[in-house]
Simulated scan of single mutants.
Amino acid sequence: MNQIELRLSAIGLTVPDAPAPAGAYVPAIQDGRRVYTSGQLPMAAGSLLQTGKVGEGDGLVSPEQANKLAEVCALNALGAIKALVGDLERVAQVIKVVGFVASDPSFTGQPGVINGASDLFKVAFGDAGTHARSAVGVAALPLDAPVEVEVLVALKDE
């Protein structure tokens, strides 16, 4: 196990295998030293962990739950990167994270939700996990997922 996976293991997390695509795309693609992931949903063992809109109130996914789901999305992105490049130690920098939050119309806490992904990258990569980011509220996501995260990373020179 490499240092990145050891750091995650220390907080009880494991990088999963790359999730199977739900359509006509690949989980990640490399362009030179850059790896772009497709949007990753909060899937575990082939199943969506939770569905619904994020917000405050009955019948909604709480911001705290959504934050943990964003962490799962980030883990899935790492799984997609690892499957493509073979070893997460090849990542030099997390460059950009884009997070989408299926939001109740009154919900404005998207940045706090996507912090679940950002915090995970900081734990995994230290300073190299610091990145630019967008956190966007949307009306709906695939499979009624509450959160989706996509990532751009730079690889080390070989």
Rank of each mutant, 00 (worst) to 15 (best):
L49I: 13
L49P: 10
Q50K: 15
Q50N: 13
T51F: 01
T51C: 10
T51A: 13
K53N: 13
K53S: 15
K53M: 12
V54C: 07
G55P: 02
G55V: 02
E56G: 03
G57T: 04
G57S: 02
D58Q: 08
D58I: 00
G59Q: 11
L60C: 02
V61D: 13
V61F: 02
V61Q: 10
S62T: 11
P63K: 06
P63Y: 00
P63L: 02
E64Y: 03
E64F: 01
E64G: 14
A66G: 12
A66S: 10
A66Y: 04
A66D: 11
N67Q: 14
N67H: 08
K68M: 13
K68D: 15
K68A: 14
L69M: 06
A70D: 11
E71S: 11
E71Y: 00
V72N: 11
V72W: 07
C73K: 03
A74M: 03
A74R: 06
A74E: 09
A74T: 11
L75D: 11
L75M: 12
L75T: 07
L75A: 09
N76H: 04
N76Q: 07
N76M: 05
N76L: 04
A77N: 14
A77I: 06
G79N: 09
A80I: 07
A80P: 06
A80N: 10
I81Q: 11
I81E: 06
K82G: 13
K82D: 15
G86C: 12
D87R: 08
D87A: 08
L88P: 03
L88Q: 04
L88R: 01
L88D: 05
L88N: 06
E89Y: 03
R90Y: 07
R90P: 08
R90W: 03
R90M: 07
R90Q: 14
V91K: 03
V91D: 11
V91I: 09
A92N: 13
A92R: 12
A92I: 09
Q93V: 13
V94M: 10
V94E: 14
I95Y: 01
K96V: 15
V97A: 08
V98F: 09
G99I: 07
G99W: 01
G99R: 02
G99E: 12
F100R: 11
F100D: 13
F100T: 12
V101T: 11
A102M: 10
A102D: 09
A102I: 00
S103H: 04
S103V: 01
D104T: 04
D104H: 12
P105L: 05
P105S: 07
F107N: 13
F107A: 10
T108N: 12
T108W: 00
G109K: 01
G109I: 08
Q110P: 07
Q110A: 12
P111W: 02
P111L: 07
P111H: 05
G112T: 10
G112W: 01
G112S: 14
G112H: 02
V113D: 10
V113E: 08
